[in-house]
Design a protein around this nucleic acid. Structure first.
Lengths: 158, 158
DNA sequence: CTCGTTATGTTATTTCATAACGCTGCGGTT
DNA sequence: AACCGCAGCGTTATGAAATAACATAACGAG
């Protein structure tokens, strides 16, 4: 993060200690409710995302995976990411080839991001597509998922 | 294209003959107006995009580049794509890692796509962000560009 | 014509992502 | 308990997407 600017404060500081444990526990609890399994690799990748100050690339996760510095094998991380995305615990940011933990309450929501081109922070927000696809729907389109990524400058970097 | 369905009619048939020549000439004319140069590799990549029935991957363009079957070198195509995107003649679809020629009138517009998960067609449309970023702007964000990609099923594939 | 700039050609490398295969361990059934 | 089906994992290898770096060539203004 912060490759292009030098602001000391991170827009999205990573979690640590109790906050991290609590976020992981919440994911664990949700998994149990839906009979899904938060296995060690999945939990580890989720932790890494939650600890991070900003979007992480897949190979950042691969490199950081082992507590002892041992990297993971790519499929380990990609499989975990697939699971975390499926359950709504993480999102992929297409325009960055990077991943973030979900910062919104509840699952199943639609994700959208404001990405700062200076500090690299990605702010998640809840998009409103109420009007956006009206024309598409009357034309017969069945919209299933939507990717919305806005790029610009965050308040701190302006 | 059409990897997952068998509809004979393409939603977005590629251009050929006079229509192709005319589209290329229009791009040529616009370049001359703005003192930009539609050089041979740029023109070639634009032709390939316009001829295609749907989004093309960069390496599809690389493979198809030479009239004699000789592929291009990757930087040749990536540079041409960068130029075409800058001038608004082509768009990158992030969620597909693919490229399409611009189908909308005029340049400088914001592009958005309806992508059919069955036939692979990508329908460009003009998004309306009038309300979408109001909150972001009052929070101090300066939005520069927006990527909007909706995935689902097109009328023909439903 | 000469110089600065823009564009291209070429080689190599880096980054991102998945295929394929076999093994393991859990949960349900009898 | 023994069996079985399947989700998940480890591992090797490879495929796909994009760019770095540097040399050469074409253009356009002065």
């Amino acid at each position: 993060m912060g490759a292009e600017c030098h602001h000391t404060e991170s827009a999205q500081p990573g979690l640590e200690g109790a906050a991290l444990a609590s976020a992981v526990a919440a994911a664990q609890a949700q998994c149990e409710r839906t009979r899904e399994r938060l296995t060690p690799p999945r939990r580890r990748v989720l932790e890494l995302l939650l600890e991070s100050d900003g979007p992480m690339k897949a190979y950042d996760l691969i490199a950081a995976y082992g507590a002892d510095g041992e990297p993971a094998k790519p499929p380990t991380v990609y499989r975990a990411l697939e699971f975390l995305e499926r359950l709504g615990f993480a999102h992929r940011i297409e325009s960055l080839n990077a991943y973030v933990p979900c910062r919104m309450e509840g699952a199943g929501h639609r994700a959208a991001f404001l990405i700062c081109e200076c500090c690299g922070a990605a702010q998640e927000f809840e998009p409103d597509f109420s009007a956006q696809f009206a024309a598409a729907k009357t034309a017969g389109y069945a919209v299933r998922t939507v990717t919305l990524e806005a790029r610009g400058l965050c308040p701190a970097c302006r």
